[in-house]
Computed example of a mutant assay.
Amino acid sequence: MTGAARGRRLLLVHAHPDDETIMTGGTIAHYLAQGAEVAVVTFTLGEEGEVIGRRWAGLVADGGADQLGGFRIGELSAALAELSPDGAEPLQPRFLGGAGRWRDSGMAGAPSSRNPRALVQAPLADLVAALLDELREFDPQVVVTYDAVGTYGHPDHRRVHEVCAAALAQHTAATGRPVKVYESVTEDSALRRGLADAAGRVPAGWRMPEPGELPSYPDAEITAQVDVGAVVGRKVAALAAHATQVTVAPSGTEYALSNTIVQPVFAVEHFRRVDDAAPPAGAPRETDLFEGIR
């Protein structure tokens, strides 16, 4: 562990297993390689996910064995191990309130969202209290969450954003210590470059996205970026570990979910800083999420 990294604590909150790798896998691997303390808190087991392929198709919730959530704990554990440095103790999953406390709500309007155990049905106060327990125990200087629209509108992503904002407000009020807060987002120009590069090698059965189909933010709204090129191979391996949800292209530079839409694997991950001390528009981008923290 380097002297600069000692004492650095990064908390990432995600809705389902695989979100951590898709959105922030490079950042997790980058800071673990530096020797920082990293915690990934996942709110549900991803029980309502659509399974790719036939091997594990019977695990699904709708008309299947409803065993997918337990299986995805193993996928998440394998992915976090891929993101961990060689020879180090693998990063272990943490689940809000304990594994299985709250259930994947499914997409907006799905019958699963009415399940009494669904994340969107849980009282906000209960979710906030559970995340406050994580904040008190881990005491991060930096937290990564979702934007208010939940990246692509998933109800659980929006719920994570809401819970994180409320819990952080209470935590900072109680401790008097500010926390740097970032939303994980996609830079528009990076997405366009990645898709242009991928256009000539789309695997059979996959398709390019329609204009605007993949969410992104204007470049001017990006306030931080982390170069994860040195660990992008770990990110690719972690994506492959989520095999029920993700397929990695033979090139290792793209992936697809069950919708078969091509998405680039980014060697730079982008963020919007949203805490009260966030820099003004037009300020130079941060290249270290711990910038300014002693």
Rank of each mutant, 00 (worst) to 15 (best):
R158Y: 04
G49H: 11
S112Q: 05
A230D: 13
P284W: 06
P93H: 12
D219Q: 11
A57E: 13
V51T: 15
A278Y: 03
G69F: 05
A36Y: 07
D86M: 12
S216W: 12
M23K: 15
A15C: 00
R103Y: 01
I261S: 09
Y255H: 14
A129L: 02
F138P: 09
V202M: 14
G64N: 00
E286K: 09
E134I: 08
K235R: 04
V41P: 11
A277H: 14
A256H: 14
F271D: 05
H171V: 02
V246W: 00
A36F: 09
R114G: 00
R192Q: 15
T145L: 05
L119Q: 02
R117V: 07
L83A: 06
A4S: 08
P93S: 08
E48R: 15
R8W: 01
C164Y: 06
S251W: 09
G106W: 00
A118P: 02
G205W: 04
G252L: 10
A99C: 08
V274W: 06
A108H: 06
G176W: 09
V163Y: 07
R101T: 09
T21W: 01
V41M: 14
E183R: 14
L239I: 04
A249T: 05
V185Y: 10
D104F: 01
G282H: 12
H242Q: 04
V60L: 12
A173V: 03
I261N: 09
T244A: 04
E134S: 10
A79W: 03
